[in-house]
Design a protein around this nucleic acid. Structure first.
Lengths: 202, 202, 202, 202
DNA sequence: AGTTAAGCGAGACGGTACGTCTCGTCTTTTA
DNA sequence: TAAAAGACGAGACGTACCGTCTCGCTTAACT
């Protein structure tokens, strides 16, 4: 959260004076923002319309999310929390295959559309999507890299490249092909790509 | 060109009446737009400011580039025409190595910043960057794919995957890592990636 | 007019480039502003509502009347042009008597309400109502003073004070009593006051 | 006072439960409000800034002065209590002369600026300054009228008009000339006006 | 040479969103 | 229970840009 929300563990005793921040309002803002992005697109997702659609005043939104980039990223993260978790048990190659396939499905759907809009907003405001990289991709990538490292140690894959590069070769390629419409992405294509990059043993 | 300019060969006969379109004005618009994007960023590159910076009236810009997407893409293409040509003679692996290295250099510089802004604008207006993929990436990719196909035929590389996928695995990975700030991109990293993907013979 | 309208005599030949300013829009703004002041009061007379009520955009209003003070004063003057003209022929004392009586009537009506609102706005923005004094009262006062001067020269009134002071003693007293609700003002009271101040001969 | 303050003698018996109202807070509010009006002007004198400047919470101010008009009038009256008292002994004409002169001085200074702002606020909120007339002018006028009545009875002045009108002819004229910037007001001008209106005997 | 069609700049205009300010109300903690 | 702290909805502020329009001037092909 960019919004300076009190961390869940820190304020057990020290309750600050004044009316506490309404979590209902927060949720309404983030969900309304996501909904607008999903249905109306990036250019229609303005503070004005988020306020109108949720019944929250503009000032309240500005207070906690002073830039549109912050608002959109948080709205996206709020939804993404439950999406596409990387399972930790099972055969690493099977896990990556399945995950890449569901990533492709997500890219082709609403989630992918919203993700792309968030990325565009980051580039538009900051000139870079590094914020999105850090706050969203980074965590998933770390989990994937750990998985691939285990696969290498256990001799399950033939590729000897650094696992971070292997990860990027899979997801970067899929993102590139999807974003620029270079080919139609299917679950099968995703699985084939995984096999080409990782070269599973056996 | 999105702008409905007369194609270079077609105007020998059908010379339309009235004052012909000023190429100086056209050039001023495209170059001014590029300069604004490079120096002020995407959000500052508005019709209003392009008009003010170039002394051209807004209406004239609207006439030939009815959307901001069209304007930015054309301004980018105008500059990109001379950049990063893929040489046709020489050892394919060496060519790709050199090209990937200079692609990384471009991504790290002004050109990369502008390119990213154009992509963001496409996503923001149309919801997709497919226009950019078609009008810019597509042509370069076709050349690269042809080169890789030749390399495969001549047995110069070990990778047997479809050349289009090989191409995307190189440039998609670099784009992904650059855009999301996942790693610092250097010429050496680019060359290593090329070798991992293509597995040159010998 | 604070709005820099071209003076009616100056532009007979030199037509400035660009779309000419719409007089209909100007009129709509001034009349809508006056109507709002008369019906809703000063605090409801905002740029926002003037724009909404007239169908004119806020920017257009701001362009020609950059402050609310300017807008309200001009809206008032536009209406006042036809009100309360001081006739030039006739017996000076009779003229002043009649004029003071109709001034009182105006003060008690819509015109007086609007006038007071304009004055309050001037005080609120500039800290003084001198603008209103110059642009509205000044002209009428000059006419009245000239009339009183003639009356003195012709020996029609007994008061020997400077005519400007005589004028202020009449209209200032009426304004004071009206504004602060010190007494109910009637035409008769106005005439009596005129006689006390001027002391007509005979 | 509009604020329902306990009268100075009444709280000896009826002590209401709970924390008693802080007179220090009341004073801070009124003085802070006056100071803001004197230094920053009417438009800067908002609840928000009074609260910020005095350290009192907005709600507390609202509780006792539910409208800005009430707050400004009370803040003004609090200061005005000690200003410009009309002495009761001495020659009536001399008293009025001196008082008019000091009224003019006050009008030209901070006090006059604040007074005008309060009047403007009354007009802006209620459409009339009658509240100000009743709560401030009324009392002073009553004293002045009594004085002038005595002067008439004792044959000290030649003017036979009702004393209330005489009073308004002096102070109304001065207020009018000051407010609309019709002439520069000096002590001498004030004295001359008094003499013209009252026509002292001898 | 005169006409005509189009290019072009200057500037007005309605509309939408921006980011900020104040208002007045409400909720919670502290004294 | 008073008062402070602060969240919040409502709505106006003044500005930026969008996209359209009405002008008048210029340019070149066609009559």
């Amino acid at each position: 959260m960019i919004s300076t929300a009190p961390e869940p563990g820190s304020e057990t005793i020290a309750r600050r004076p004044g009316r506490p921040r309404s979590t209902a309002v927060q949720q309404a803002i983030l969900q309304g923002t996501y909904r607008l992005m999903a249905t109306q697109g990036l250019s229609a997702t303005t503070y004005e319309r988020v306020a109108a659609a949720t019944g929250v005043s503009k000032v309240t939104i500005y207070k906690w999310w002073p830039t549109r980039e912050a608002l959109l990223v948080d709205a996206f993260l709020e939804q993404a929390r439950t999406f596409l978790p990387l399972p930790e048990n099972g055969h690493p190659v099977a896990i990556v295959r399945a995950h890449a396939a569901s990533y492709v499905a997500a890219l082709n759907g609403t989630f992918g559309r919203v993700q792309l809009a968030v990325i565009a907003e980051c580039i538009g405001s900051s000139g870079t999507a590094a914020t999105f990289g850090e706050r969203y991709l980074g965590k998933r990538r770390a989990a994937g890299v750990a998985l691939l490292m285990r696969a290498q140690k256990e001799g399950l894959i033939g590729a000897t490249d650094p696992p971070a590069d292997l990860y990027d070769m899979i997801y970067g390629t899929l993102f590139y092909q999807s974003t620029f419409g270079l080919r139609k992405l299917t679950a099968g294509a995703a699985r084939r790509l995984v096999d080409r990059v990782l070269r599973p043993a056996g």
